[in-house]
Structures are given as C-alpha cells and as structure tokens.
C-alpha cells in the first residue's frame, strides 16, 4: 500500500526539530532511519500530517568513549555501529546484537535512536539498553534530561519520550574487565523480529556471577527484566533461575507464537546465555 499524504520538513537542528514538533503537535512524527516508521505509513497503520526528517541534523551520528561511558548519537546507523571498534571493545553486548538486527540493507538506514525511541517490544537494542542499565538522553521544549533504562519503557511503544521531545543519544557504561555479556534470540528467519530473545550483562569472577541483568524481549509489551531469575543466578542456581522465569515473565500471545511457547523458549534462551556468560575466555 501507499502512505496517506503528508507534508515534509527537514529539521536543521535538534532545537528546530523540537520547535516543529511543538508547532504541529500530535500530527507530526519524527523520521530517523524510517525502517519501522515508513513501513507503518505504507500499511496506513499511522497517518501523520507531517514528517520531520532528522537526517539533515549534523553531529548526531558519533560514537565516543568518554568518562567510562560509550556515547552513541541518536542518528548513528546500525551499520556504523556494526563497524565500530569502540563498540566492539567497550560495548560488546551491542556488537553481539548487531548481526541479529534485520538485514544489511536495513542496517544501512536504521538508527539506534530510532530503534530505542520506537521501542518495539521484540527489537534487540531496547533490550540491550535495559540489560546494560544505560541512559537515554532526551531533549524537549524545557531543555535536556537523562532517563535511566529501568525508568524509560512505559508500555507498548510508550516510553519516557514526551509528545514534543526527541531522543538525542544514549549512554552505556563502558565494559569493565570482569564484565560478561550474553545475547541470544530465536526468530523464524535470520534478521526477523525475535519470537523471543535475551540480552544479558553480568560480572563473572571466581566462578560466580554477580550484578546479573537479564533483559528479555519479544515476551511482553516492553523489554523486561527477569529479576527473580537474576537473583537465582547470583545464587549460582541455573535450574532455579529457569524455574523463576515462570513468575518473572507472562508473555502474551502474539502474531508469531502463543505465550506458553514463548515462556518455554525464554528458559532455553536463559540456559544458552548463561553458558556465554560463564564460559572460559580464549
């Protein structure tokens, strides 16, 4: 299908984008990489009056290591992140997730800011943000603010981003030496949205996992922490952790699978990811 007619404006700066949002209100949508937005427009699931294109804004596509944090600008393309040495070294979980994100042609356009602002419950990067306990930088009419990943996801496609706000970047803690990361997802075709997936971070020393953060995706309306399973893993009991998922997760049925299957798959993923977190490094 073809989208309903809309007007188009190219924002020159973050301030300009926010002013345009304020001017046009609910009828406006921000266009980042467009790899989800344009699909929903084509299917007429959404019919904004105006698109505000962020692709002309300079300075939003950098990846920098600063003060123990990896900062990634909102308009950084997946393909740039995939090629980045800073990401590979200091944000390895993001590097692990990257090949699972759609396909090369889509990674050339899609942006990290767009993915995290859209917050598809089955997408990889929102779950990685949650697993890493990262921060989201948001600019709005009243200025800038920073929101913790744990406080950011509010509901299905709902986040801490307000109607006249724009996500400008994310900050992730740079990986310390004893940190471990795990990532696994199950999908019908490589690159498709996950039926269920898991992004995890932890510290592993003397055979013990601590500071475990498990962020499941594709199993609820937002990416979700499995806190009972995290505690069980910190206690060294994998079977108990898998059993704890019964209380941590309550996946609704969706177009891909029913909730019971997703719950079972979550246990499969947890065993695979714990293997990654605890395996001896070469």
């Amino acid at each position: 299908m073809k989208p309903a007619p809309f007007a188009y404006a190219k924002a020159r700066s973050v301030e300009d984008a926010i002013a345009l949002l304020a001017q046009h209100g609910e009828g406006a949508k921000l266009l980042a990489g467009g790899q989800s937005l344009i699909a929903t427009l084509n299917m007429r699931l959404s019919a904004p009056r105006i698109l505000i294109d962020l692709n002309g804004i300079a300075g939003l596509n950098s990846i920098t290591l600063k003060g123990g944090e990896v900062e990634i600008g909102a308009m950084t393309r997946h393909a740039e992140i995939e090629r980045s040495d800073v990401i590979r070294k200091h944000a390895p979980l993001i590097a692990m997730a990257m090949p699972h994100i759609a396909h090369p042609a889509i990674r050339n356009r899609g942006t990290i800011g767009g993915s995290i602002a859209f917050a598809d419950p089955a997408a990889e990067l929102p779950a990685c943000l949650l697993a890493l306990g990262g921060l989201v930088e948001i600019a709005g009419p009243k200025g800038k603010r920073t929101v913790k990943a744990d406080d950011y996801f509010k509901g299905l496609y709902e986040t801490a981003i307000g109607a006249c706000d724009m996500l400008t970047g994310i900050r992730l803690p740079a990986a310390p030496a004893a940190s471990r990361y795990g990532f696994a997802e199950l999908s019908r075709r490589h690159g498709d949205y996950a039926v269920a997936g898991l992004a995890a971070s932890a510290t592993f020393a003397s055979g013990k996992l601590t500071k475990v953060r498990l962020a499941f995706f594709g199993v609820d309306l937002t990416p979700v922490r499995a806190k009972a399973a995290e505690m069980a893993l910190a206690g060294g009991d994998l079977d108990k952790a898998v059993a704890a998922l019964a209380s941590d997760l309550d996946p609704p049925d969706d177009i891909q699978e029913n909730g019971a299957v997703k719950k079972h798959l979550a246990g499969v993923l947890l065993r695979r990811v714990v293997q990654q977190l605890t395996e001896t490094r070469a």
Binding site: N42, A105, R109
Partner: peptide
C-alpha cells in the same frame, strides 16, 4: 512495501537500501 522482501533493493550513495523504506524526497 514494508521492508521484508528485498525486491526493491537499490543503492543510495553506494550503500544498498530498501527502496520502499526511503522517501524520494530524502
């Protein structure tokens, strides 16, 4: 027309993209 099939693949500035997920105006 929603980015799944890849039949519309073209190159923009040397990189392959989905022709259905990019606007002509862009």
């Amino acid at each position: 027309e929603h980015g799944v099939c890849g039949a519309c693949t073209v190159r923009v500035n040397g990189e392959i993209v989905r022709g259905c997920l990019m606007l002509a105006v862009q």
